[in-house]
């Protein structure tokens, strides 16, 4: 009983950690640019596939490349980190193609929605073309060295979930420390607060924007790799549902709020984990039902700042 509850809570916290990563990915770009990067879900998928490939996973691409894979695979940790970095670089390309042209002509925010979604569509379908529509499972030896289950307070729990939670927590802590303590992190916050003033203070806002996209993509890629190794890669569209739930978490926590994204992610993950097994089909709607309620009660999110309309 205790064991089951502990496992349930841990599962919830682990997936909540991944939701928080995605929500933080949105937050970084939103706080600097004031728009939402809808390509993030596709970057999440990309991170999963890159981790799989870098670990030497074999692909078949609908039979087009049967059994193709890297000759030498990396172990999980370097593969995950490298995949996150590469996803961050692709996120920079997304910025260049989907955001930069509109920013130059000061287009209305609505257009970013379309272009970033277009970029996501291109990414997902490129993955589908190159990797195929079929799902891939990481080899059982992907986490060699990690015991299958851990003994905590007399209960046995799956260690993959502990790993997930630990990596998410580490990423969140590093990101927060960097934002609060480092020169570049504070510069990013300054641009988010007021881009014009930051520019007058000599901060290169363009560079900060690119940094935000790089980090945002890396967080999504990290999430994709973690979900891939703990569950599987069901197909190129896997990231879309995480992207949507991250969006729900983002609003739940308040747009642009870092602690809000973390708290919202954990809350959402735990709430989902507590859905009883025989109603599991409805689990995917829970995040959005909660979101709906929150928007009703607090239109600017749980930890968001209230905005007053001015003339």
């Amino acid at each position: 009983m205790i064991e089951a509850l502990l496992q349930t809570l841990l599962n919830g916290a682990a997936s909540g950690g991944v939701y928080a990563l995605v929500a933080l990915g949105y937050t970084l770009v939103f706080s600097v640019l004031g728009v939402i990067n809808f390509a993030l879900g596709a970057l999440f998928s990309l991170g999963g596939y890159l981790t799989y490939l870098l670990m030497g996973g074999r692909i078949s691409a609908n039979g087009g490349l049967p059994g193709w894979g890297l000759p030498q695979g990396l172990s999980f940790t370097p593969a995950l980190l490298l995949a996150a970095l590469l996803t961050g670089l692709v996120s920079l390309v997304v910025e260049r193609l989907a955001f930069a042209p509109l920013r130059r002509r000061r287009a209305e925010p609505l257009l970013y929605l379309i272009t970033s979604l277009g970029a996501g569509l291109v990414l997902v379908n490129l993955l589908q073309m190159l990797m195929g529509a079929e799902g891939y499972a990481f080899p059982a030896t992907a986490l060699a060295g990690l015991p299958d289950a851990l003994q905590v307070a007399g209960a046995r729990i799956r260690s993959v979930q502990v790993l997930l939670l630990a990596v998410c927590a580490a990423a969140v802590i590093v990101l927060t420390l960097w934002l609060e303590r480092s020169r570049s992190g504070r510069a990013l916050k300054a641009v988010a607060e007021d881009a014009t003033t930051a520019r007058l203070l000599g901060i290169d806002s363009g560079a900060m924007l690119r940094l935000a996209f790089l980090l945002s993509g890396a967080l999504a890629g990290l999430g994709g790799g973690l979900i891939g190794v703990s569950i599987s890669l069901p197909g190129p569209y896997m990231g879309i549902s995480y992207g949507l739930k991250g969006l729900a978490v983002l609003v739940l926590g308040g747009l642009g709020s870092v602690p809000g994204a973390i708290a919202g992610g954990l809350l959402m993950g735990l709430a989902e984990a507590l859905v009883p097994g025989d109603a599991s089909g409805w689990r995917d709607a829970l995040a959005f039902a909660i979101l709906f309620l929150v928007l009703l009660l607090r239109p600017s999110g749980l930890l968001g700042r209230r905005q007053v309309e001015k003339v």
Partner: peptide, 28 residues
């Protein structure tokens, strides 16, 4: 009556939530 009190991106996300709720309902 509920969602149109919201503005801008909040409204867009609330309506995405509606789409997902309807989709999951039809599925289940």
């Amino acid at each position: 009556r509920i969602v149109l009190r919201l503005q801008g991106i909040y409204l867009a996300i609330a309506t995405i939530a509606l789409v997902e709720i309807v989709r999951v309902a039809i599925l289940n």
